[in-house]
Design a protein around this nucleic acid. Structure first.
Lengths: 345, 345
DNA sequence: TTGAAAGCGCTAACAA
DNA sequence: TTGTTAGCGCTTTCAA
């Protein structure tokens, strides 16, 4: 079996408690000479503290549970990476799990995080989690989307505003019949993006009916199919408005990748025949053909804000829930109709 | 504090041991009537076993540690998802960490997994891990790439063969001057892919000098820049061979995304001016413009094979190391010059 | 400044 | 079939 603290104590000729004092720099002082003996013994025996025992004794597990709908969407991938790093910088390891839209699975996974005494939980957009299991949670929870009910803290993007801003950008280019490709609206972020498109169109006196909306799975394939529905001559927009939308607002980058592909297959030039904008600003969006104009949501920043908030809750539990909201910034590519700025790469 | 097993025992009027017997279905039998009382008490009190205590006592942590270079490469993203799922199906949760190419970080993270008593470790390609820290590991380790030294089990793709096969496909289309975009060759998988390209070119009497190779970071940007170097008139291929390569072998999908973008910027049509093939077969590769011809490596299958092997090692430790090797399958897109098959979508 | 010892919640050997 | 109890490795209080 592995080397334990007692082994170290014996080798150093001290009691096990002193080894703890040395390792934890407290709570009692240790003479410099004893400390040196202990450190030497640790080094010689290759002793490593058992994190499980430490956690049981009442310390923390130094673990964060992260629940996302999936991993294949690059937005969640980048978010997971950023969360992992933000907490890693503070000595925490991340337990990750994906729900794949399975409600029963969500509860089970959340419960697993709780059973393992994760010090804190992060739940992203797209995880539905009815209040029930969350109410039993003892550890702090941070939700990365806007929620109506919330006694839980949230840090989110201002999805509705960001959507409106990017739709506005299309309008500035002269578009009025703008289609909307969006994920299932019962997911908060998708619902808000849809609302942003609709409100911006409505407020400016432009069409905003359901005939212009295509709900789609949040994947390349989803965006691809929805785009086909919106742009084909058999689609609803033709039926309702007698013409094809001249632009598409696509609610996520990954759907936009499919949308661009659909346009290409249909022989429609982007942005000349159809302009496309999306939301996310993932790295891959800079390399599509042509590069996407997208509302960039800074996952690094989001993750750091989330980490700061959650770590505070972990260190001093019981504080009031807060609701942070971040704003995206528009990355102008070549799919919206903007001309390349001379001298810019 | 939370409900403990003693609370349940008291409520059910039995001893704590009986509660364990019920929960674990053993090792002693429990009368059906007692069992019912215990289950009722558990239900009523909302008791959840403390996974930490159970782990300390000597059971397992039901945790797997997964070490990847990063998360932003969709290949690793998909792999992480597949691993998470493959082990999740067996009741294991996945601890994930990324090294970002930082050697010191690798060791530290690996040590953290060990300290937390993860039941098994998975290390992917791109993680260098000198033998040193791995020798101290008590739990089973599975490496997802070929290694020379190995006393550790491996499950890997046959990178060299797969690379040769996809280069062969280019050759069939009549290409002979084929450039190679590849990641740092000290990473096993990249080294093997480079070797596959070189060997296939050499064996068939075609150019295979270093002038045709561009080492690149494994990212869109890396592929983008390397492609610029290979195809521009100031690049080495022109200097050495007096013409531009008519095709590129790109060692990963993510680099190929950048490569396609570079071709587009240079005004080169794919596949007419330059053919492009890659390796990975990630989902996004089906939606590039035009869709990529790529050697698909089935991460689901890879993850299931890895899970099967590692779970076996966990359940019956001390068995001989094995080395599994899987073969990719060519997904023909439109970047290689193949004509679309009529009637196919 | 250091040692002894209780106890975190659980499993399983041993006793009844 | 059930109860009692030692002990996993650690932290920290209390006593010296």
């Amino acid at each position: 079996m592995a080397v334990t603290r007692s082994d170290v104590a014996r080798a150093a000729g001290v009691s096990p408690a002193v080894v703890s004092y040395v390792l934890n720099n407290g709570p009692r002082p240790v003479s410099i000479i004893t400390r040196a003996r202990v450190l030497a013994a640790i080094d010689q025996l290759g002793y490593r503290p058992n994190a499980i025992a430490s956690a049981l004794r009442g310390g923390s597990t130094q673990t964060i549970g992260l629940l996302t709908p999936n991993r294949s969407n690059p937005f969640y991938g980048a978010l997971a990476e950023a969360v992992e790093r933000a907490f890693g910088d503070h000595g925490y390891l991340t337990l990750t799990a994906s729900t794949y839209g399975n409600r029963a699975g969500e509860e089970r996974l959340l419960q697993t995080f709780i059973d393992r005494k994760a010090d804190g939980l992060i739940i992203t957009s797209g995880v539905s989690l009815s209040g029930a299991p969350l109410s039993r949670v003892e550890q702090p929870v941070l939700v990365l989307e806007e929620r109506s009910d919330d006694r839980l803290s949230t840090v989110s993007m201002d999805d509705q505003l960001d959507a409106a801003r990017v739709v506005d950008h299309l309008q500035v280019h002269g578009h009025d019949l703008i289609g909307c490709v969006v994920g299932p609206p019962y997911v908060s972020s998708d619902g808000l993006r849809l609302a942003g498109w609709r409100e911006q169109q409505r407020r400016t006196g432009r069409p905003h009916g359901d005939g212009l909306v295509a709900l789609a799975e949040v994947s390349e394939e989803g965006g691809y199919q929805a785009t086909g529905l919106l742009l084909s001559e058999h689609g609803r927009p033709w039926a309702v408005y007698g013409r094809r939308p001249t632009a598409l607002f696509v609610a996520s980058d990954v759907q936009a990748f499919g949308a661009l592909h659909a346009c290409w297959e249909l022989g429609l030039r982007v942005p000349d025949d159809v302009a496309v904008v999306s939301m996310g600003g993932t790295r891959a969006a800079r390399y599509t053909i042509p590069p996407l104009t997208t509302m960039r949501q800074d996952v690094e920043y989001l993750a750091r804000a989330a980490a700061a908030r959650l770590l505070k809750d972990i260190r001093q539990p019981g504080s009031q829930a807060t609701h942070g909201r971040l704003t995206g910034n528009l990355v102008v590519g070549r799919t919206c109709g903007c001309r390349p700025v001379p001298g810019d790469s």
